[in-house]
Design a protein around this nucleic acid. Structure first.
Lengths: 233, 233
DNA sequence: CCAAAAGTGTTGTGACTACACCCATGT
DNA sequence: ACATGGGTGTAGTCACAACACTTTTGG
């Protein structure tokens, strides 16, 4: 048993897992679905890229969701609303620092414009990386490539059923914007007419009266997410 | 800080959550969806009903799934295949034994015929209870009523999309059996013809050549789950 | 014959894909 | 005018719920 595990005791005197939060932050940037990775300063995997994460602090956190928010604030210097719990993974080989490591994994979607994540505690640098690359990358720290893949699959299922993960979009957007982003997340083209009919049937979005976006060509109606739309069984 | 938390340390000297597994075991018994509850012998909530559960043992368990299997074996004296991870919940007020309690919650479906769960360690008795009652019951220990509700909702979604949770059925069954069980889980009647068409389209089941079940009336074809059926996008 | 459960057909609705087509605008 | 992206319309297919119907058995 490693020396740093000696004192981990429970009410029944059993040592407890080393319990962490990991966060998969996804965004569509440059027409490509990307994931936010942090370059580690400390061992293990010093200098390698990993998901931003941190230890659950029972003295600071009122829930797992609060833990995730604190970790994001410390590591990225920002807040990310609408994080969802993805899964929990645990086992003896996951992290060389501990005999047994447990991670609660969260995922979040965000748009990146204007927001700059700043490398915080124990992070040398932050970078966005295409998910396709990240999932294939054998040099990613811990089991993080697998966690990214799970987050992407879950997000694709949500988009498939037109549950638009909040945070992915600006408050105002055109239907073209929305379709382009969904296509990037799914990694395939969608039919414009079909896509719009689905949006209409399920009341996913509502037009913003009078607001248009002018560009080089024909101006487009601006929409917002309809927060109260009903899911179809 | 409670005395039993003094020694819970991590590699960074932070105390760790009191980490447990809870298991929601569901079954259709007497034409009613029921959940397996354990009467607690020890404080807290001694004498109250709770989900069977236990501490994660880093010296014994090779993964969270292995933890769940061990807990089920110790508490129920049996094995339950096909447990799925449901969610993780954590916070300072969940369990009076610890400053901060984390539970990884699993769910499983089973058929109950022939199998007898035997009350194991720290359990006075086991009983099946209708989920409708259990969810309403304000005397259930911890936050377990809420966990049961989440397990039931997840299971209903699976049945809705005809992902039949394994373990729910005998190896051989008639389409009438299958429909009746699905109806009990969902809490509503299904149309026979529609139900069968969906099963056929998605190749969920396959007939067992020649095998029939004779009863009081017309015999019925026996089926088995087709393990390799394809999910529809 | 009758009750009960197994199993099949039929019809209308609505969502989906694929594709064609019109509209408004800046250059 | 025309390229570009915004936006609409149509036709065929498929899955669906609802409901009626036929079949096979024991009594």
């Amino acid at each position: 048993m490693k020396n740093n595990d000696i004192n981990k005791k429970t009410p029944n005197n059993h040592p407890m897992p080393f319990t962490r939060i990991e966060v998969v932050v996804l965004s569509v940037i440059d027409n490509c679905l990307q994931v936010l990775l942090a370059k580690r300063t400390d061992a293990p995997y010093a200098g390698k890229w990993a998901l931003p994460g941190g230890v659950v602090r029972i003295d600071l956190d009122s829930s797992l969701e609060a833990s995730a928010q604190r970790v994001v604030a410390e590591r990225l210097g920002m807040t990310i609303p609408n994080m969802e719990q993805l899964c929990a993974v645990g086992g003896p080989k996951r992290d060389p620092r501990a005999d047994w490591a447990l991670s609660i994994v969260f995922k979040a979607l965000m748009r990146v414009e204007g927001v700059t994540a700043n490398a915080g505690k124990r992070i040398e640098a932050l970078a966005w990386r295409s998910v396709a690359e990240a999932i294939e990358d054998r040099t990613l720290a811990f089991d993080h490539a697998e966690l990214i893949e799970r987050a992407v699959n879950t997000t694709r299922s949500q988009i498939d059923s037109l549950v638009i993960p909040p945070g992915l979009l600006d408050e105002q957007f055109t239907l073209g914007d929305l379709q382009a982003i969904c296509e990037q997340v799914l990694g395939k083209k969608l039919d414009k007419s079909s896509f719009r009919r689905k949006l209409a049937i399920r009341n996913v979005v509502e037009p913003i009266g009078g607001a248009m976006r002018g560009g080089a060509f024909r101006p487009a109606q601006l929409y917002r997410l309809n927060e109260t739309y009903e899911h179809k069984g």
